[in-house]
Simulated assay, not measured.
Amino acid sequence: MAGRKRRTLTAPARIVLCLLLAGISGYFLYHCALDVLTTFQLKEQIAQNKSQISELEDEQTALQEQKEKLQDPEYLKYMVRGKYLVTKDGEQVFKLPTTQDDS
């Protein structure tokens, strides 16, 4: 095996091989960058969705409390009389002006 000659690439073949490897490396780096960008976008969307879920849960709790209150006949009378100015027979309602604090 001592007489075996080692084969070497010519200069144009080396250039082509280097360009090919550089192109493949660039392709993989581009797709890695896209994956990183997608990951950041998904994390941002997850954070927004968690915030929205929290707001909706708070709203659901408030609506559930309001539903329970509206099932109470005394509270319902209070609301109808106060908010909508419903009166009993013979009652008079006087609406007084309210003062608003503009500070």
Rank of each mutant, 00 (worst) to 15 (best):
Y27P: 02
R81K: 14
L9T: 02
L42Q: 14
T10N: 06
K95L: 12
A2F: 04
Q45G: 02
Y30C: 02
V93P: 00
E59V: 08
M1T: 10
T98I: 10
F40I: 13
D102M: 07
S54T: 14
D101H: 08
F28R: 13
I24L: 06
F28E: 02
L70D: 05
F94G: 03
T87W: 01
D89Y: 10
H31M: 04
Q92W: 08
Y75K: 11
L85E: 05
L76G: 00
A33R: 09
Q100T: 12
K95F: 04
C18Q: 11
L85W: 08
E68H: 10
Y27T: 09
D35G: 05
I15N: 01
S54Q: 14
F94T: 15
K95Q: 07
A22C: 05
A2I: 09
R4V: 08
S54N: 12
A13R: 11
S51P: 01
L70H: 13
I24A: 10
G23F: 01
V16D: 01
L17T: 04
K69L: 13
E74I: 13
D102K: 15
V86I: 14
L20I: 05
L9E: 00
K95G: 00
F94H: 12
I24D: 01
P12T: 02
G82T: 14
R81M: 07
L29I: 12
I15H: 02
K77H: 04
F94V: 15
E65S: 14
L42E: 09
L56T: 12
Q64G: 07
T87P: 04
D89C: 09
E55D: 12
Q100Y: 07
K83M: 08
Y84Q: 10
H31P: 00
N49H: 09
P73H: 05
K43Q: 14
L9D: 00
T99D: 00
A13V: 04
I46C: 05
A47S: 10
E57S: 13
D72W: 03
K77P: 01
N49T: 13
K5A: 06
D89H: 09
L20G: 02
G3S: 10
K43C: 04
G26F: 04
Q64I: 12
D35M: 05
R14Q: 01
K83I: 06
Q48N: 13
G82S: 12
S51M: 08
P12C: 02
A13Q: 08
